[in-house]
């Protein structure tokens, strides 16, 4: 839209745009399936929900998958509903379906995602590289802030750890847990004047957790013959100690993302002398 367009035309255009967006969103919400009436019978996602991808792939290879009418997806296996606390030794014992896809079936993608985040954090650190200035205090944080953020940091750290340890049971996982921990560190920086984080320790921690991820993957390679394969027993669905290696990988990812984002916050918020111009 050009500069000399009359303002009335601009306003009418903006208003009609808003109206179209509103109507579209409203329509999308009316078309949204109700939670109980989703028909998973004809979808591939049912394979993931039933946690038996191997058998389904076998039937896919034999040509039974897209049968006429597609009614029973897998007629060879009787349909057995999964109940929490009872079903044991499934192919993937995570109660959270998203986690079982993200970490188990598509674990390699997650490795790439973590690598992208690592590159981003390294780029930020490179951008703000330099000798650290002595902090000149602009606005002194009050006593309430400095004590309160320190108390809140403990609770926030605990909550972040809860999110990524329970990643295979409840919604959440390594990335949100790490982000929550990093926001706690941000609070520490804002509330305390002379707070200095251990930058080297953060980097070391992050690299070690990244290595732990790859080492878990390599263990799968050597014991089950495929990279990032589940090599631990899956246990009873819904238990804390279940789902094999998913909890281990999510702990590694959570620590890595938390350390990484904390390092990003640290290098953003601390003033440095520029080494080059």
């Amino acid at each position: 839209m050009r500069n000399d367009t009359p303002i009335l035309v601009k306003k009418i255009t903006a208003l009609s745009l808003i109206t179209i967006l509103m109507v579209g969103f409203f329509w999308a919400f009316t078309e949204m399936p109700k939670g109980s009436s989703v028909n998973v019978n004809n979808r591939v996602s049912r394979l993931y929900i039933l946690k038996n991808v191997k058998a389904a792939t076998k039937s896919l290879n034999s040509g039974n998958f897209f049968a006429k009418g597609m009614k029973p997806l897998r007629s060879d296996v009787p349909y057995s509903p999964i109940t929490f606390g009872k079903s044991a030794n499934l192919e993937d014992g995570a109660a959270n379906v998203v986690t079982s896809i993200v970490v188990d079936y598509r674990g390699f993608d997650t490795l790439g995602e973590v690598t992208v985040l690592f590159l981003a954090a390294t780029g930020v650190a490179m951008l703000f590289f330099g000798k650290r200035k002595k902090n000149i205090i602009k606005a002194q944080a009050s006593l309430i802030m400095s004590v309160g953020t320190r108390i809140a940091y403990a609770v926030i750290l605990l909550f972040g750890i809860y999110i990524f340890v329970h990643g295979h049971l409840t919604p959440g996982g390594g990335f949100p847990g790490g982000a929550v921990i990093a926001s706690g560190v941000l609070g520490l920086f804002l509330g305390n004047d002379h707070y200095e984080s251990n930058h080297l320790g953060l980097k070391l921690f992050e690299s070690l957790s990244g290595m732990a991820f790859v080492i878990i993957g390599l263990t799968g390679l050597f014991s089950v013959n495929s990279f990032l394969a589940n090599f631990l027993p899956t246990g009873v669905i819904g238990d804390l100690y279940s789902a094999g290696f998913i909890a281990l990988i999510y702990i590694a990812i959570g620590m890595k993302v938390g350390a990484e984002l904390s390092a990003v916050v640290d290098s953003m918020i601390v003033d440095t002398e520029e080494e080059w111009s």
Binding site: G35, P176, A179, V180, S183
Partner: peptide
């Protein structure tokens, strides 16, 4: 009904990236 994405969006989009 995508609570995983909702948690991630709230933690990263509304919390960290605004501050950064």
């Amino acid at each position: 009904q995508a609570p995983d994405v909702a948690i991630t969006e709230a933690a990263i989009g509304a919390g960290l990236s605004t501050a950064i």
